[in-house]
Write a protein that binds this DNA or RNA. Structure first.
Length: 184
DNA sequence: TGAAGGATTTGT
DNA sequence: CAAATCCTTCAC
């Protein structure tokens, strides 16, 4: 699938989703693991909405709420692939690496906490939505998640095999991928 | 009311 | 490997 970001002036940017991670109830790494708070409230809301939070005071991470209303679960978008440099994005970095990570992805798309709770839609103006893939299904690698202090053993990270925009290939430690699946 | 630390990124 | 940097969460 691709993620489309449209600004108020009509400018559109489209990136292929290359890497994701899932967070669900009962998962110690999930922001909603303990209880509902101001920050994670959106995760308890309707599916198809954006959950955006700031991390390390510097970057933002974009999730899409996936579970039924009242059940806190979301998918973190970790990397996008672009066919060209989006307007205003420095070209000093190799194209596949400009959104190779959850923080970079939000930087490129200008997504911040002000988008928290926004529904996916196509209305004119500030908007974010998803588009289905038209190409044949890529080979997907499933492995453990990255950068966590808890729930490090849960294999809920997926990325397109051999894609240059994936943030990191091997999870810290250097073990290789756990397996391959065909699609989603 | 305060302190610890994080689903990151970058440079040393 | 450590810093940057701010906001949320949890403990007292």
């Amino acid at each position: 699938m691709s993620l489309v970001r449209q600004w108020a002036d009509g400018t559109q940017v489209r990136g292929l989703i290359v890497e994701t991670e899932a967070y669900e109830p009962g998962d110690p790494a999930c922001h909603a693991y303990r209880r509902r708070t101001d920050r994670n409230a959106v995760m308890f809301g309707d599916p198809g909405h954006l959950y955006v939070y700031q991390i390390y005071g510097l970057y933002h991470c974009l999730n899409i709420v996936t579970h039924p209303t009242g059940v806190a679960g979301a998918v973190l978008l970790r990397a996008l692939s672009f066919s060209e440099y989006p307007p205003g994005i420095p070209t000093d970095k190799p194209l596949p690496r400009i959104a190779a990570g959850p923080g970079l992805l939000c930087q490129v798309l200008d997504i911040t906490r002000r988008h928290n709770g926004l529904p996916l839609n196509e209305h004119p103006g500030e908007a974010v939505w998803l588009e289905p893939r038209r190409d044949p299904p890529p080979r997907i690698v499933q492995t453990i998640r990255i950068g966590l202090t808890q729930g490090t053993d849960i294999p809920w990270r997926w990325y397109i095999a051999d894609h240059p925009a994936v943030s990191r290939l091997a999870p810290r430690g250097g073990k290789e991928a756990m397996g391959c699946i065909d699609d989603r």
